[in-house]
Simulated scan of single mutants.
Amino acid sequence: MNRVMSDKKVIALYVLPAFILLMVLVYVPIVLTGYYGLMKWDGIGRMEFIGFKNYQVLLTDSMFWSSAGHSLLLAIFSVLSLVGYLIISLVLAGKIKGADLFRKIYLVPMLLSSVAIAQLWMRIYHPTNGVMNRFLTSLGIENPPLWLADTNIVLYSIFIPIIWQYAGFYILIYYAALRNVPNELVEAARIDGATPWQIGWKIKLPLISGVIKVTIVLAVVGSLKYFDLIYVMTDGGPNGASEVMASYMYKQAFRSYNFGYGSAAGFFLLVICLVFTWLIRKLTTSKDDEVQY
């Protein structure tokens, strides 16, 4: 068996199906997207090569940069929410009573589709019959906010269900990482008189730092390319106040039939995600990354 697996031809034969699948589903579409961005095309008729004009227009498109700012703001909120998820995971990993039940409750949003979550929160935010405004009215507030119609707060109103939707996902990742921390280290710290806060901050967190960095990358990249829940709840409105890069790209390609420009926006979105991923990895890399225990 070792002789067979040491044969480079055999290894190449095993890798080939996965490589072909990766090329067809990932790399070829990326190349085609960049290529279509060089064209003036409605998605159906004849393509006209216009070079980098779409990309030049994109760089001066105020609506695109406004949507990029909204996506970046969502990324910031998503990263900040990781702190809350981490605290919850630390509590759940501390062997508290009912931890298993809470873990299952936090996973419920992951079991729902984005459309179902959007419909649920649209009813919560309903201006007259929604739970949110009824609660505020009961407190004596006569004119509660129009959560999804006010350009000043609509973006933050959408952030709440997005953060709620992915809470279980990140809590599960952190919880699994914390459960893998050697119990001997924790017990030794307790014997030395360390408080639960000190154990969490100086022992557990450094040991799962690699997992934390991965979740930061996932949160940032996921936020930059987020689309579905925003599309269902507000469709980028009102007046573009909740438009994000992915929804703007969709509208350009499939509503305005400007497929070339939409492809340029999509390719630029990919570049932005790659740049942010590289920056995060660069900023969070240190010589002490590998913790030995």
Rank of each mutant, 00 (worst) to 15 (best):
Y35E: 11
R103M: 14
V181L: 04
F102W: 15
G94Y: 13
P161Q: 09
I272W: 06
L205T: 04
I212H: 03
L58T: 03
D288I: 07
T284K: 04
Q292F: 13
V232N: 04
I230L: 12
A194V: 06
Y166R: 05
S242V: 07
Y85V: 03
M132W: 14
K95Y: 06
W278D: 00
E290T: 11
N133C: 09
S71K: 05
F49T: 07
V220M: 10
I76K: 01
A264K: 10
Y226L: 05
I171H: 12
S263H: 02
G37S: 06
I272M: 14
E142I: 11
V108N: 07
M47G: 07
F52K: 02
I162V: 15
W164V: 12
T215W: 01
H70A: 08
R281E: 10
L16Y: 11
F169E: 04
K282G: 03
P127F: 10
M5D: 04
A194H: 03
I44P: 00
F52D: 00
I117H: 05
M23D: 00
I50G: 04
S263G: 07
G37Q: 04
S89A: 15
V244D: 08
P182T: 02
I160Y: 08
D235W: 04
R179P: 00
W278Y: 13
P196R: 09
G34I: 06
G193C: 07
V31M: 12
L136S: 03
G210Y: 02
M63D: 14
I88A: 12
